[in-house]
Computed example of a mutant assay.
Amino acid sequence: MASEDLDLEAEYNNRARVPDHPTHIAGWQRDAAAYRETARCELGLSYGPGERHRLDLFLPQDGDTGRPVVLFIHGGYWQGLDKSFFSHLARGANERGLTVAVTNYTLAPAATLGEIVSEIEDASDFLVRRTARPLVATGHSAGGHLAACLMARPDPQTMSVRAAMPISGLFDLPPLVPTSINRALGLTLEEAHRLSPLEWAPPSSGHLVAVVGGAESSEFLRQSRAIADEWGKAGVTTRYHEVPGAHHFDVIAGLADPADPLVDILVGLSAEA
């Protein structure tokens, strides 16, 4: 739970916290487009009827190890960006022999957050059917929330995500309600509680590594620590991992580098999933 003394707008408005964020976002777009030019990939696969029900599949150049597929879910506070900004983040795992899917979902306000969670479940189910493999779910910011939702999914028939690496994830949503971030989301306090993975029955097993940038706000640090602590008590093998000196927009950069610790974590999770 957030402290009542905190300035929640300052804690959660990452674009205001990192003034040069447009440079980072432009870099993502450039590097993602360059990777799509050379990668082995299947682009625009449809997992549902909607315009944004699409995902891209990136395959290892030297052959797949047969391990679980990594599903990356992009951030943007559920209301911005799309998969085309993040293709390059498949590179690190691809070069370690893992197949990576990067998915879209309908953005708020065109979809409610509850509907977005359901769409990500549909994308997950599509991938499992297509590949006949379990998944390792990862995602950045809002995508970290959705990755945790997949792992905590209550339906016992769809236990396809037993490992996750949320990066700068959001698991306790009520602090967002009074901020500018909620204008597009339109969350009531009741909905924020209902859609918070920290308030769900946690998984009783599996593996989760909660990643966050060392230079992020105290609330982002708290949220990652909280899910590692709470799920760890329930029987999940958890770890809290800070990327030294990283802020909200460069914390994901290591995913493009096969030698980076974040890719090491994904490879380790893929062996456990």
Rank of each mutant, 00 (worst) to 15 (best):
A2C: 12
E4V: 13
E4W: 15
D7Y: 08
N13I: 01
V18T: 11
P22H: 10
T23I: 10
H24V: 13
I25D: 11
A26Y: 10
G27K: 03
Q29P: 04
R30F: 13
D31Y: 10
D31E: 14
D31K: 14
A32C: 05
A34E: 03
Y35C: 01
R36A: 13
R36K: 11
E37Q: 13
E37C: 06
A39Q: 12
R40E: 15
C41W: 13
C41E: 08
G44P: 02
L45I: 07
S46T: 04
Y47C: 04
D56K: 08
D56W: 01
D56H: 02
P60Y: 15
Q61W: 11
G63N: 12
G66L: 03
R67H: 03
R67I: 04
R67Y: 00
P68N: 05
V69S: 06
I73A: 01
H74P: 12
Y77S: 13
Q79K: 13
Q79V: 14
G80T: 02
G80D: 06
L81D: 06
F85S: 06
S87D: 06
H88R: 10
L89Q: 05
A90P: 09
G97K: 05
V100M: 06
V100K: 05
A101W: 04
T103K: 01
Y105D: 02
L107E: 15
A108D: 05
A110L: 12
A110C: 10
L113N: 04
E115P: 00
V117Y: 08
S118V: 07
I120W: 01
D122G: 02
D125S: 07
F126P: 00
F126N: 03
R130T: 15
A132N: 14
R133P: 01
A137S: 05
H140M: 05
H140E: 02
A142D: 06
G144P: 02
H145G: 07
L146E: 07
L150Q: 00
M151N: 04
R153I: 00
P154V: 00
D155V: 02
T158N: 08
S160R: 08
V161A: 01
L170C: 13
L170P: 12
D172G: 13
D172W: 15
L173W: 05
P178M: 04
T179S: 03
N182S: 12
A184K: 05
G186S: 08
G186V: 11
E191A: 11
A192S: 10
S196I: 14
P197A: 06
A201Y: 02
A201S: 07
P202F: 00
G206K: 03
H207P: 05
L208A: 05
V211W: 07
V211G: 03
G214A: 08
A215I: 09
S217K: 08
S218D: 14
S218Q: 15
E219T: 10
E219L: 05
R222C: 08
Q223V: 12
R225P: 01
A226K: 09
D229K: 11
E230G: 09
T237E: 15
T237L: 06
T237S: 12
T237N: 14
Y240R: 10
Y240N: 09
H241P: 10
H241N: 09
A246R: 08
F249A: 09
I252S: 10
A253P: 05
A253M: 03
A259W: 13
D260F: 04
L262I: 06
L262D: 04
L262R: 06
D264P: 01
I265V: 11
L266K: 00
V267I: 07
G268M: 01
A273E: 00
